[in-house]
Lab assay of single mutants.
Amino acid sequence: HNLTITQGKLFFHYNPKLCLSEIHKMEEVSGTKGRQERNDIALKTNGDQASCENELLKFSYIRTSFDKILLRWEPYWPPDFRDLLGFMLFYKEAPYQNVTEFDGQDACGSNSWTVVDIDPPLRSNDPKSQNHPGWLMRGLKPWTQYAIFVKTLVTFSDERRTYGAKSDIIYVQTDATNPSVPLDPISVSNSSSQIILKWKPPSDPNGNITHYLVFWERQAEDSELFELDYCLKGLKLPSRTWSPPFESEDSQKHNQSEYEDSAGECCSCPKTDSQILKELEESSFRKTFEDYLHNVVFVPRKTSSGTGAEDPRPSRKRRSLGDVGNVTVAVPTVAAFPNTSSTSVPTSPEEHRPFEKVVNKESLVISGLRHFTGYRIELQACNQDTPEERCSVAAYVSARTMPEAKADDIVGPVTHEIFENNVVHLMWQEPKEPNGLIVLYEVSYRRYGDEELHLCVSRKHFALERGCRLRGLSPGNYSVRIRATSLAGNGSWTEPTYFYVTDYLDVPSNIA
């Protein structure tokens, strides 16, 4: 807008934040220059609390790290170098490059900038070799853009010569660093050979998330399962459950009422301010606690030095998902009996873990797994792929695949051998790939016309006998059925096997 004052003059007093240069501009645009008398524009009460600059400061050096910015700028000295009290560095987070010096300023003089007072450097006698002032900004957020400017702080001049310097606002972004852990990993099994893994992005990506790394490792069953005799009275049979499938998407929606109208769909109840505040506090606490764990609990591995020492970490090797089922080394339970199943799973520490690289999504279907087997899954978020990966501390989750139908069934015939004193040795093959492992066998036998009897055969007993022995049988026709019990439950009964026990007292003698 054009402003013209045809008559009258300007009068400025007691404006401590208004620089004289701005008042002189007002004289020019209003056409009143030359009308004012000496005392109409006070030299001592206008701009006496402001830094009124008329020179431009330029930054000469900028260096960044993930949490620091090192700045240096060209030296500046007023005509009387004693008038320079120091520099004021202003900075704040700036997602967009549209910041002005006066953003967030209120009537009390406060604003949204963080201000650092910096002492002037030592003055050199040689004007050509003056030290460049600077400042190291610490405690910054990774991968965050900051708006920065600097200006001088000078003393009051009796001659009211307006001098000083100020830089333009520059924008500097800190470097990326390792992201925080992925949030809320959930693993479920939808079949006997697959596990579905879902997660949420890290709360602090500290860069642009480029991919996720998912490692999985087959877990050995508890050692007590191999040692305890679950045929003993009072000892509860062990059981394991597989990871249940995901709930429906509708039930997972946030901010939804727990109660549904019987007449149909209901609208979600909005969260109160107290609920939102509580969630923010919980989120802040979780982030602080995660940072504490990362800094205190997890110790970084030592990389190899120039002395030739090897990095103890196993090298990563990509495998196809079809090879995942046989990740671990199978060892027989008892070496003397080769027909026992290889369900003991000690994992070799030198073995390469299978892994998958996930790009542009937060889910993965891990296939080719062994049925009813526990897996430990390790999830890392990465925001750099080359020249070397920059990934987060791992988040861990466990899951067990679903049982395989008929995996616990005894394959092959049940054979028998009759000894003296009416002892019958029953023999059968253990299931080759049971659900988890076989903890015991149930032997059901009966003599024709009598009630059915049951015998429990422990895992250890089966390994020693290759089956079991029935003792003290009365003469007669017998039928026997056997079924295995694994961590997933009972298998199917075998087809009945028949044998006849004679009275050993009636056996004919070869003595003449």
Rank of each mutant, 00 (worst) to 15 (best):
Q275G: 04
I438A: 12
V297C: 06
L225W: 11
V331H: 15
V296H: 07
R301I: 04
D204L: 13
S304R: 05
G476D: 01
R313C: 14
V501Q: 05
L440A: 05
A405V: 13
K302L: 11
A463R: 12
T415L: 12
E362F: 05
H416I: 10
D408T: 07
G476M: 00
T373H: 12
L453N: 14
L369W: 02
Y478F: 09
G476Q: 00
D409L: 08
R471F: 04
D506M: 08
P244Q: 14
V334N: 06
E442W: 06
C456W: 00
G374D: 04
E351R: 14
S274Y: 15
W428S: 07
N295V: 03
S239P: 15
E417P: 06
V501A: 06
P332D: 09
T386M: 14
I377G: 13
E281Q: 12
K460F: 06
F355K: 13
Q384A: 15
E258S: 10
G325H: 05
P387M: 04
R471P: 06
F355L: 11
H294L: 15
C231K: 01
S284K: 13
S398A: 07
G489R: 04
C456P: 02
N510S: 11
D229P: 08
Y445N: 02
P434E: 04
C391T: 10
P354H: 12
V411C: 15
V457A: 10
L437H: 08
D204H: 02
Y375I: 12
L455I: 07
S348W: 09
Y448A: 08
S458A: 10
N383M: 13
H371G: 10
P434S: 09
N208S: 09
T307M: 07
N326P: 13
H454G: 15
L426F: 10
P346T: 14
V324R: 15
H371W: 05
G476N: 01
K357G: 10
K460D: 09
N490C: 09
G207E: 00
S444V: 15
E356V: 13
T343C: 06
V414I: 13
E404Q: 14
S315L: 12
L437D: 10
N295Y: 07
P332I: 09
S486E: 00
Y441P: 01
F462R: 13
V424R: 03
V365I: 01
E350T: 14
E417F: 10
F355Q: 09
P413T: 08
R301T: 09
A395L: 10
R390P: 11
A484V: 05
L369G: 08
G412N: 05
R390Y: 02
V397Y: 14
F298T: 01
C269W: 02
S444T: 15
I438K: 01
S344Q: 14
P431Y: 01
W216Q: 13
E362W: 10
N383R: 04
H416N: 14
A484G: 12
M402N: 15
Y396S: 03
P312I: 15
W242G: 09
D273T: 02
S274E: 09
S284A: 15
K432C: 10
E249L: 15
Q380A: 07
Y498P: 03
G489Y: 10
N422Y: 15
A484R: 00
Y478H: 11
E310D: 01
P387T: 13
P354E: 05
D250T: 12
V296D: 01
T373G: 06
R370L: 08
M427T: 09
S304E: 13
A263N: 05
V331P: 13
R390V: 08
W242C: 04
F289H: 03
R318W: 14
S284C: 03
D323E: 12
G412I: 07
L437W: 02
W216H: 06
F372G: 04
Q275D: 05
N255L: 04
T485V: 11
S223M: 08
H371A: 10
V324P: 05
H454V: 14
V424I: 02
P349R: 15
L505G: 10
V480H: 00
S486L: 01
A405K: 09
V214W: 01
A395Q: 03
V334Q: 12
Y504S: 05
L237E: 09
S367D: 08
A399P: 03
D311N: 11
N477L: 09
R376I: 14
S363I: 12
V423P: 02
L369P: 02
G264M: 12
E247C: 09
Y504R: 13
L437I: 03
L237N: 12
V397A: 14
P403E: 02
G472C: 08
E465D: 05
C266S: 11
P349D: 12
K406T: 10
S486C: 02
Y212A: 07
G368Y: 06
F215N: 07
R471H: 11
D229A: 14
S315W: 14
I418K: 15
N360C: 08
L369V: 09
N435A: 05
G491S: 03
N383T: 05
S492A: 04
I366T: 03
I410N: 06
S341H: 10
K460P: 13
Y448I: 13
T485Y: 14
L369T: 11
V334H: 09
L213Q: 10
Y396T: 04
I377T: 03
K236G: 05
Y500D: 09
Q380E: 07
K357E: 10
W216N: 09
E389A: 04
K460Q: 07
I366Y: 03
F499C: 14
N510Q: 09
I418D: 05
L293S: 03
Y441N: 01
L277W: 09
A399T: 05
L277V: 10
E442I: 06
E217N: 11
V501M: 14
S315F: 13
T272P: 05
Y498V: 13
S363R: 12
A395T: 09
I418M: 02
Y500E: 15
A488P: 02
V443T: 05
E465W: 15
C456R: 02
P332G: 06
L487Q: 12
S509N: 15
E224A: 06
V439C: 12
D250F: 09
V414E: 03
E310P: 08
N208P: 12
T502E: 13
A395R: 05
V443M: 10
Y292K: 02
H371I: 13
D408L: 04
A395S: 10
M427S: 08
A399M: 02
R471V: 03
D506K: 12
S223P: 13
E404W: 08
S320Y: 10
L453D: 03
V443C: 04
D311M: 05
D250L: 12
F462S: 07
P338R: 11
Y498G: 06
L455H: 10
A336T: 10
E350L: 05
S341L: 10
T340F: 12
L364V: 07
G234L: 05
V345I: 15
T303E: 11
W428Y: 01
A335S: 10
D408F: 00
Y259I: 04
R353D: 15
E356P: 15
T386E: 14
G374P: 10
I377H: 05
K432E: 14
D204Q: 12
P245T: 10
D291I: 04
V414M: 07
N422V: 04
F298I: 03
P338F: 13
M427V: 11
R466N: 00
V358K: 06
L464R: 08
E310S: 12
L237H: 08
L440K: 04
V414S: 03
R319G: 12
R313L: 12
E249I: 14
E217Y: 14
K357S: 09
K406V: 12
S223V: 07
P332K: 05
L453F: 04
F289G: 02
E290N: 01
Q252M: 13
H294Y: 07
H211E: 15
V327P: 09
W428F: 07
V501Y: 08
E351P: 13
Y441A: 01
Y375F: 08
G234T: 09
N295A: 05
Y498Q: 14
I482D: 01
H211K: 06
G207M: 01
R240E: 02
Y212P: 00
Y441S: 03
V358L: 10
S262K: 08
V299Q: 14
S367P: 10
M402R: 15
C231F: 01
A488C: 02
L464G: 11
Q380L: 11
V329R: 06
W242Y: 05
F298A: 05
G368R: 11
T340I: 14
N255S: 08
V443Y: 01
V393T: 04
C269Y: 03
D229E: 08
L470G: 00
V334S: 11
L470M: 10
T343Y: 07
T502W: 06
S398M: 05
L321Q: 14
E221V: 11
K406Y: 08
E433V: 12
W242M: 04
T303V: 06
D204W: 15
E420P: 15
L455D: 15
T333Q: 05
R218L: 10
A488F: 03
D222L: 12
Q256N: 11
V414R: 03
I418H: 04
K302I: 09
T415R: 12
G436Y: 02
G412M: 11
G207K: 00
V331R: 13
P475S: 07
Q252F: 14
F419V: 09
E350V: 13
G489W: 13
S342Q: 07
L213R: 15
A395W: 04
P475T: 08
V359Q: 11
I438S: 04
S509P: 13
